[in-house]
Design a protein around this nucleic acid. Structure first.
Lengths: 261, 261
DNA sequence: CAGTGGTCTAGACCACGCG
DNA sequence: GCGTGGTCTAGACCACTGC
């Protein structure tokens, strides 16, 4: 679409545009190193800050990544498939496949005050004591961090059980909860948000500057509507694609007026 | 978490941190204007470029927004609820509610070559001729752009029908297709990606610098597995939250080995 | 050590929105 | 006209990596 910016465009836009085209056309392949900033200064006959500003644009677009002392590289665009509604039922097979590629580090398990954004979906006061399990997930092959996860369980559900211990549980968390309580997971709600990472998330997930995260909050309830568990996952959004397969319901309803979605 | 950076941290980090805390603590409320850059130069006793670098960090985090000639403001964090699997069946009521807040502009309807990322999910060659309907959606109240949308239909499905005309269709698109073809939507697959916007998307959606987009590609097939329709939606990710409500399937399966997701 | 990107400065001029 | 943020420069020094 925007091809060949006019001479009126800011210099750093023209530089970003030229480099973006070289990346898109494969002249600069994924993984390849870009010319050094000083080289780009000579090539485009601009000042270093201007060149750096152009690189900042491409960095924010997720196209390149700079490594201090080494160079600037075209990013590899690999995305790990994640499955929506992937915790339960028939999707278990896929989930199992996925988790076998991942290593779990339990970074915390025990009681603590519930964070406010979780309290909100649980319908309790912020700071109420709950059982919290925090984990970091890494790719077994590359050792790259792939997820920051946490589960929040009401004390009535998980208090006094092995879920307060910092060990990997023997099976899917929801099966443990069902066994321990005799209550059944009946309905779930997922909330998806894409946002910019906090500084902590950025460092744990080793995110390049400007890369967003995908933040999923999962609420599970029993048949009475009581919350059994809230889980949240934070993924590096530039390395994730979420897949959702489902049957189309064949209900005959009155047609909506003018909805083109 | 990161509270009070040491004196070793870069200056622009310290400035960003101070302003971030003021925003989080409400001293700088959403919608409020920040002090002018020159004022911040005096307050923090740093150079203008350093102050601007700090503001760039907050801008990339989605916390502030600068308007040329006016000032820099704390962003309002309003998110429009979007429903996953919201096109069909019982979710129609919610979808109808949503679409009644939105105004549709059909920006194109007719035949054209299929883009490569759509061709891939349709299983056809890039550039094959298909029927394309492109739309922009705006909030009726605020007139703010909320979605860039497009539908791609095989010529066998929509060729020669009113779907090639640039008018709003009388009912949900999938109902039109079912009526016109006698074929039935049976299975669907959604693919979700969060990424940085292109320059075009950024300008159409009026995105502040550094704000990501949510990109959903929806594939619908009939009972034979043939593609009836591919739709894509691009939303400003900083103004969207996706909600997915669903029942938990109660299948008894063999437990997975060590999956804590 | 040399080469890379990261931080920081002082200062200039331009473009925009408003009164 | 004035205050705002946007663009651009020349140059300095630091920090990291690998040889």
């Amino acid at each position: 679409m925007t091809e060949g910016l006019g001479a009126r465009a800011p210099k750093y836009h023209r530089v970003a545009d030229a480099l973006r085209r070289e990346i898109r056309d494969g002249e600069l392949a994924p993984g390849q190193r870009l010319p050094a900033e000083t080289t780009l200064v000579e090539r485009f006959r601009m000042s270093l800050p201007t060149i750096r500003q152009a690189l900042g644009v491409l960095r924010a677009e997720g196209l390149i990544e700079s490594r201090h002392g080494i160079g600037t590289f075209v990013k590899e665009q690999r995305r790990l498939q994640r499955r929506s509604r992937g915790r339960y039922g028939s999707a278990r097979d896929h989930q199992k496949l996925l988790t076998h590629h991942l290593r779990h580090d339990i970074v915390f398990a025990g009681r603590g005050p519930v964070p406010s954004h979780i309290a909100e979906v649980m319908g309790i006061d912020p700071g109420t004591e709950v059982v919290i399990r925090r984990r970091h997930l890494f790719d077994k092959d590359t050792n790259q961090p792939e997820e920051i996860g946490a589960s929040y369980l009401p004390v009535e559900v998980a208090g006094g059980t092995f879920l307060e211990e910092p060990t990997v549980v023997p099976k899917a968390l929801f099966l443990c909860v069902e066994d321990l309580t005799g209550r059944h997971y009946t309905r779930a709600r997922d909330q998806w948000i894409a946002r910019m990472p906090t500084a902590d998330e950025s460092s744990i997930l080793e995110l390049p500057t400007g890369a967003p995260v995908m933040h999923v909050v999962h609420v599970a309830r029993d048949e009475d509507g009581d919350v059994l568990e809230v889980s949240e996952s934070i993924w590096p959004a530039d390395r994730v694609i979420v897949i959702d397969d489902y049957p189309v319901e064949q209900e005959a309803e009155q047609p909506a007026a003018a909805s083109e979605v």
